[in-house]
Design a protein around this nucleic acid. Structure first.
Lengths: 342, 342
DNA sequence: TTGTAGGCGTTATCAA
DNA sequence: TTGATAACGCCTACAA
């Protein structure tokens, strides 16, 4: 059974309507100007009857534009990814673009693979939330088609369009806030920073704050743990708490870390208190519900998706290879109970 | 500048290697059998040099299969969606398929639009997490190409392949568990149930439990609130608490509701206690961290994505239009402090 | 106002 | 063992 819309080609429409495929093509593309009212109506009817839909593949092959972008996510499991994708989708839908999603699953090899596959595929541009270990590939890809880095950038700046948040400034401001709240010491908790730009920016700001605000040696307050090793975070927490300087606070590099910290603390019977504060990047719906409420620092992820898509589509449209642009969103500090000393 | 991989066609390879495009095509598709070792090596080298990648569009146009599936999500913002998509992606990547994501943003019209756009586009199949208000469209789509319903099904059963969880059984079991814990009354909290199958299944089970386990009139314990009206949920909660039967517990239809409930409770100074329990569907990372820990009921979302994709790809491959299949995953009850009476 | 024909990059059927 | 060549479905000069 030949189903509606499936397998119907421009030829079917043409013969049924008694015109040439050219005319049908014209009709489909809105070139009504020089078309007799009668054929136009006839076409409209036939197309509806047959439920004809032009084959996007053929159209793309001919016109060399697939109306599709690719979107490579470092880890699709994160709520961050969902929001980013939603923002990207909203813009693309409106502008008639399709979005291909590829999950790198935190694996640089998969990320590289993703770019490969995207290059065969007919995507007109790519939005990348990189794992941070494939700068070379990214530069190569960006040389071939428009790329926008979302949230995370590569080491060499000014090469690729990007939409990021003000990690350094916001981190420093948050640390100043902690200082003003009366905390005398802050620990920076993170998985290995690697080349992930959000992490390096936050760590760098932390180091500066340690020196300028707290007059401490950042090395003693930096706790990089191994997420693969269950004993690693508890150990780091223990070491952090051993130093007697109080009140102290934890500065968490992202939501996943915050979550792991809270889990560990609960398991060990450690509670947030006047002596122990907590503040971190990423704000999920639950941030206000845990304990006294967790103070967070976050940029609008959905907006980041929107901006990334807008930037990319603009780039695609205006074929220009101008200098790389960087859009920076603000991280907002939401103060909650976890950083209240009394 | 003509960049590697971009714009290089089979012709370029052929002429450079001094063979015909046919031979190149053969090479690309692994038909080495009748190929001289020398041309094979020559081809391998040239292809590497030129970084040639076959154009997926042309390939798809010719072979009538795009190696792409579409994935329509009721609401991409939900962490559920992210996990489902990740599962789908994992399978598709492995089998060489691309995944097109469309977000319906909880809007049936957008969902319908998504199917339309997917039908022009050359997807070989669709995984749908439907908003629940477009059964007709879904049936039409499923008549044209393979469709798998993920998590939510349409009203008429047995028509479309699906991967769901045992909502009814698990709900009933959870309610029995609450009964055994000593709760004398349970309130069912949900947004309007509409035609969303997960919700109707859970509500139906609740009604049966009300009758069989609690000997109560379900109508008095069903609280459907309007998510758009901020006063609606607090009002419902108030009404629920007015009845003096204790201890009582809330049965929340999903994670979003649980979150809203917890927010409302916090705002109103209502705490989970021996008198007031809480248990609900969906388990996010924070479930164990809020208050005494929230007892939850949930199926493996990632697995659901994996199964959906496997089912769909199998369907696509074995062109058969056999009877609809339904895979059912188990919801697991994770007992935490929120349903502990003492 | 409408139609013819060539081409987009592949695959596949022949033939050599 | 390899090569012409005709599709695939659509767009678009160029003609009529």
């Amino acid at each position: 059974m030949r189903t509606a819309g499936k397998g119907i080609t421009i030829h079917d429409v043409a013969s049924r309507a008694g015109v040439s495929i050219t005319t049908v093509s014209r009709y489909m593309n809105g070139f009504y100007e020089n078309m007799s009212e009668s054929t136009r109506q006839r076409l409209e009817q036939v197309i509806r009857e047959l439920d004809y839909r032009p084959n996007a593949l053929a159209r793309g092959l001919k016109s060399q534009n697939s109306m599709t972008i690719g979107c490579v996510m470092a880890d699709m499991a994160s709520p961050f990814s969902a929001l980013l994708v939603k923002g990207i989708n909203a813009v693309c839908r409106e502008q008639g673009y399709k979005v291909l999603i590829l999950d790198a699953d935190n694996d640089p090899r998969l990320e590289t693979e993703a770019y490969k596959s995207l290059l065969n595929n007919p995507v007109e541009g790519i939005i990348s939330n990189t794992t941070g270990r494939v700068d070379g590939e990214l530069l190569a890809v960006a040389a071939a088609i428009p790329v926008v880095l979302a949230d995370r950038v590569i080491e060499t700046p000014g090469q690729i369009d990007s939409v990021v948040s003000d990690n350094a400034e916001a981190s420093f401001a948050a640390l100043r806030y902690l200082k003003e709240q009366g905390y005398r010491r802050v620990g920076f908790f993170s998985p290995p920073v690697e080349k992930i730009s959000t992490r390096t920016a936050r760590l760098t700001a932390f180091r500066r704050a340690e020196e300028e605000l707290f007059g401490r040696d950042a090395r003693e307050d930096t706790f990089l743990y191994d997420p693969a090793d269950p004993a690693s975070l508890p150990g780091a927490l223990q070491r952090f708490l051993e130093d007697g300087t109080k009140p102290c606070a934890i500065f968490s590099v992202n939501g996943a870390v915050t979550l792991e910290l809270l889990r560990t603390m609960r398991r060990q019977g450690i509670e947030l208190s006047e002596e122990l504060g907590l503040c971190g990047f990423d704000d999920w719906a639950w941030s206000e519900l845990i304990g006294p409420g967790i103070t967070t620092l976050v940029a609008d992820t959905y907006e980041m998706g929107v901006r990334s898509a807008e930037l990319l589509l603009e780039r695609i449209r205006s074929k220009e290879r101008g200098p790389a642009r960087c859009i920076e969103l603000k991280n907002v500090l939401t103060e909650r109970g976890s950083t209240q000393i009394r």
